[in-house]
């Protein structure tokens, strides 16, 4: 690799190598306010040209690293930032062994974590991003939450929030312009714009929190709340985890303890304002 940088997000320390300078310059700008990475890297990401001559003729970014998906979509060089984000996600989802990885967003308040899991479009990222902008909450992550197997603590992974389509306007209306990356239009996922978390999220990114409530949000329906029992929660969380099976018995012990001690609810909400109000109400009830 001709160029490389190091980036630290929560407990992960990425070394990102690239055949081109541009994607790394964009990454460096996006992560400029993150605590600096020290020590040796524990995840490696490569952005490389499919064939050496393609670097000049028709540049396309392939992604790789400790784990590579051979058919991963090559992206034009103008989407190098997106390729880097995809590669970092891939490394976490497939390569991370130290913690149980949940495909879930999380926010922290008073040392306790609210974890929100759901598919793309469920609103978990937008709800976490909106809560992260309010004074009482700390954004822990919009995409991945790490669970420490022995303690059951939630660890933050506060990468820049990947805002998609309508969520972009919702956040640009509230947040200072200098916290946004470039607008990436017409990507395979639609329009994307990255938003750097608030300073409190970066300063505390290595501070764990005790899981206190797990929500499974669903955007676009009338307000409804349904309790989820421990066995259904276990099934949902194993589905939401990319590495549960790799962790063996410590993962089993951790998850079976979590489903017995942390309350879980499925919620529906028609818009962000009512979603936020519902989350605040359920949080107060869970801690009462």
């Amino acid at each position: 690799m001709r160029h490389s940088i190091r980036i630290s997000v929560g407990p992960a320390h990425f070394r990102i190598g690239s055949d081109w300078r541009e994607p790394l310059a964009q990454l460096a700008a996006l992560y400029a306010t993150y605590p600096s990475a020290t020590g040796s890297a524990n995840a490696t990401v490569h952005l490389f040209a499919a064939r050496p001559w393609r670097r000049f003729l028709r540049p396309a970014v392939h992604i790789g690293g400790d784990f590579t998906i051979p058919d991963a979509l090559p992206l034009p060089l103008s989407m190098g930032l997106l390729a880097a984000e995809m590669a970092m996600n891939l490394q976490m989802a497939l390569g991370w062994r130290r913690h149980m990885l949940l495909h879930a967003s999380a926010v922290e308040r008073g040392g306790r974590a609210l974890i929100m899991s759901g598919q793309s479009g469920s609103g978990k990222s937008t709800l976490a991003a909106l809560l992260g902008e309010s004074a009482d909450w700390r954004l822990m992550g919009d995409e991945f939450t790490l669970i420490e197997p022995l303690s059951g603590d939630a660890l933050a992974f506060p990468r820049p929030v990947s805002l998609k389509n309508q969520a972009i306007a919702e956040m640009t209306a509230r947040v200072a312009a200098d916290r946004f990356g470039p607008l990436l239009t017409a990507t395979p996922k639609g329009d994307i714009r990255h938003m750097v978390p608030r300073a409190n999220a970066l300063a505390a990114m290595r501070r764990p929190a005790v899981p206190a409530l797990i929500l499974f949000p669903r955007f676009g329906a009338d307000v409804a709340v349904q309790r989820i029992g421990p066995s259904e929660l276990f099934v949902r969380l194993t589905e939401a985890s990319t590495n549960y099976a790799l962790l063996g018995e410590p993962g089993f012990a951790s998850l079976s303890r979590m489903v017995q001690t942390v309350p879980a609810l499925a919620i529906s909400y028609p818009d962000s304002a009512s979603g936020l109000a519902l989350v605040e109400q359920l949080w107060a009830e869970a801690l009462a």
């Binding site: 066995s231 276990f234 089993f252 079976s256 017995q260």
Partner: peptide
Amino acid sequence: LACVPLDALTLVYDRRSAQTHL
């Protein structure tokens, strides 16, 4: 085996296969 009875189902982790059964 490690068995954890929950509400409706019992979780069983098989240490030999590293599989989880409900």
